[in-house]
């Protein structure tokens, strides 16, 4: 069976890169004594997949990984073993067993919610957000492997709101279309003609899509 696990990458660890985080998780799983599955081949490693890599510098409140295990086990029993094997800065929060045939979180991922904590909120930003969203098209330059590419990010913005210094953004995050929070922020402040304040952006939730509606990815 497989375990869908929710964990937090706390702000202190936000500078840990994806591969380093992966290795840290594999070592934690080895410490846990859980019945893990290993890859075949010359250098076997623990089977483990993350729903989506987190950018360096970004904390994640509800990050998701999928861990195949041998035998049957409840989510609570899994957490009980994994919890002491993790440092306080990388706590696991929730786990749910699913069938081996269950579609991987990575494949079901559709969107993510981000929260940007602005060091200061320029006056007029609130109005700018409304006007920004009222546009039918938002041309932007997306970084790709082959260089900057023009694209329209409006359809990838599902929600954008400003609340007491926090900018909440719900953005497309899947194989077909991804809008990174940084791209949205630079578009927004350029459109508003306001200086962009320093902000730590946290990914707070990931979503899957079913029948046109979004659901927390871990519950899909």
């Amino acid at each position: 069976m497989k375990m869908i696990v929710v964990f937090e990458k706390t702000p202190r660890l936000r500078h840990i890169g994806h591969l380093d985080l992966m290795r840290a998780m594999q070592r934690a799983l080895r410490r846990s004594g859980l019945p893990l599955k290993y890859s075949q081949g010359f250098n076997p490693h623990i089977l483990l997949t993350f729903a989506a890599p987190l950018s360096v510098g970004m904390p994640g409140k509800r990050e998701i990984m999928e861990v195949p295990i041998e035998g049957e086990m409840t989510g609570e029993a899994f957490l009980e073993k994994l919890r002491p094997a993790l440092p306080p800065e990388l706590p696991c929060l929730w786990a749910r067993p699913v069938d081996d045939r269950h579609s991987a979180p990575m494949a079901q991922l559709a969107a993510a919610l981000y929260e940007a904590e602005l060091d200061e909120t320029p006056s007029g930003l609130s109005d700018a957000v409304t006007a920004f969203l009222a546009q039918e098209e938002i041309p932007a330059l997306r970084k790709t492997k082959t260089g900057l590419k023009p694209c329209d990010i409006r359809p990838m913005i599902y929600d954008l709101s400003l609340n007491s210094g926090k900018l909440r953004m719900c953005l497309a995050l899947c194989e077909k279309a991804t809008c990174k929070p940084d791209l949205l922020l630079s578009s927004l402040f350029e459109f508003a003609k306001l200086p962009r304040p320093h902000a730590i952006v946290t990914r707070t939730q990931m979503f899957g899509k079913k029948d046109g509606a979004f659901y927390p990815l871990e519950e899909m």
């Binding site: 706390t10 202190r12 660890l13 500078h15 840990i16 890169g17 840290a24 070592r27 440092p87 306080p88």
Partner: peptide
């Protein structure tokens, strides 16, 4: 390489 300056490793003593 900011990860060198953050600590928070497993078995670090707090």
């Amino acid at each position: 390489k900011p990860a060198r300056y953050i600590g928070g490793e497993m078995n670090a003593v707090r």
